[in-house]
Amino acid sequence: MKPAPFEYVKAVSVADAVALLTEHRGDARLLAGGQSLVPMLNMRLLRPSVVIDVNGLADALGEIALQGDAVAVGALVRYAEIERSSLVAERVPLLRHVVAYIGDRQVRNRGTVGGAVAHADPTGEIALVTLALGAIMRAEGPDGVRDIHAEAFFLGPYTTALAPDEMLTHVIFPPAAPAFRFFERGRKHNDFAVLSLAVVGRPEPDGTWRDIRIALGGVHDRPVLAAAAARALEGRRWDDALVRDAALLALEDCDPPDDFRASAEYRRHLVPVHVRRMLSALAGGHE
């Protein structure tokens, strides 16, 4: 388990990283926390000819900052920094909540938000949260900066809308509905999810719910929004029957995979059960 030979370059700026990506178009990889890239190199599943280390760019990309009423998280922010950030705790509590489900302490000390999103594991917790909260991915390429909505960002397993010469610089979380519930089931503690699920919404004084988003992980080739289920619940008062029917609609937006962790059949069974339970928990204000 030693990597095939590659050239190592340390980027000195985002522009430098982008230039290097452009130069080696398609044959270079950015190295952030290395928690996904390094194992893939060691197993020789990836054989880039150049590895561009971006860990020196923490000054530019290692900050969590308020931008108007949105929270901008730099691509090099480590999971552990999310756990410790009071700004995240206050403004994006769901993001902070899910970090505890990722890997172990060592992984959380190294792994970065940008790496997690760019890696686009279909079970990744951060990717799930970007969907649930309607985050915006900011990328820089040879032609400048562009913003990509989370919904348009994840294209398939380990595949994103980033071009080979683009680098993700920030994940921006606009203000979102305040109430949320998160659930995850794996084969063992902090393993990749068999199913993960975030529900977000805003209870109105009249007893109805607004701005509902339901994001699912592990049950599709990428994290997905259960849009049909959310539509059924939007602007309504919830009762058991409505919640039950909406939960069933969650199956319309996912096509669960069959893998070693769980069969597609079992995942299909679990989706409406846990969507229903989380919606009830959200409505009832309990776990």
Partner: peptide
């Protein structure tokens, strides 16, 4: 993919 238990 080998689910050996951890203390947790």
């Amino acid at each position: 993919d080998y689910f050996a238990p951890t203390a947790a």
